Simulated scan of single mutants.
Amino acid sequence: MRRIWLLAAFSLALEAGAGELYRWVDEDGRVHFSDRPPVEAKAESLDGQLKPINSADATRKIDFPDSSRAQQIERDYVQRRQAQEARDLHQRQIACNQARRQLEILKGRVYFVDADGNQTTISERERAEKASALDALIHRHCS
Rank of each mutant, 00 (worst) to 15 (best):
W5D: 13
W5N: 12
L6C: 12
L7C: 14
L7S: 15
L7V: 08
L7A: 15
A8I: 13
A8K: 07
A8F: 13
A9C: 10
A9I: 12
S11E: 04
S11C: 14
L12I: 10
A13I: 11
A13F: 14
A13L: 15
L14F: 10
L14H: 07
L14T: 06
L14C: 11
L14Q: 08
E15F: 14
E15D: 10
E15L: 15
A16I: 10
A16V: 07
A16R: 11
G17H: 08
G17T: 08
G17P: 00
A18L: 15
A18F: 12
A18K: 06
G19P: 02
G19W: 07
G19A: 15
E20T: 10
E20Y: 07
E20S: 14
L21R: 04
L21S: 06
L21M: 11
L21H: 05
Y22F: 15
Y22N: 03
Y22D: 02
Y22K: 03
Y22P: 02
R23P: 00
R23E: 10
R23L: 14
W24I: 00
W24F: 05
W24H: 03
V25F: 00
V25T: 14
V25N: 03
V25E: 08
D26E: 03
D26V: 02
E27C: 02
E27I: 04
D28S: 13
G29F: 01
G29C: 02
G29M: 05
G29I: 00
G29L: 02
G29P: 00
G29S: 04
R30C: 04
R30N: 10
R30K: 13
V31P: 00
V31A: 06
V31L: 12
H32F: 05
F33W: 09
F33E: 00
F33Q: 03
S34Q: 02
S34A: 13
S34T: 02
S34V: 03
D35N: 15
D35E: 15
D35C: 11
D35K: 13
R36P: 01
R36E: 15
R36D: 09
P37K: 08
P37C: 06
P38E: 04
P38V: 01
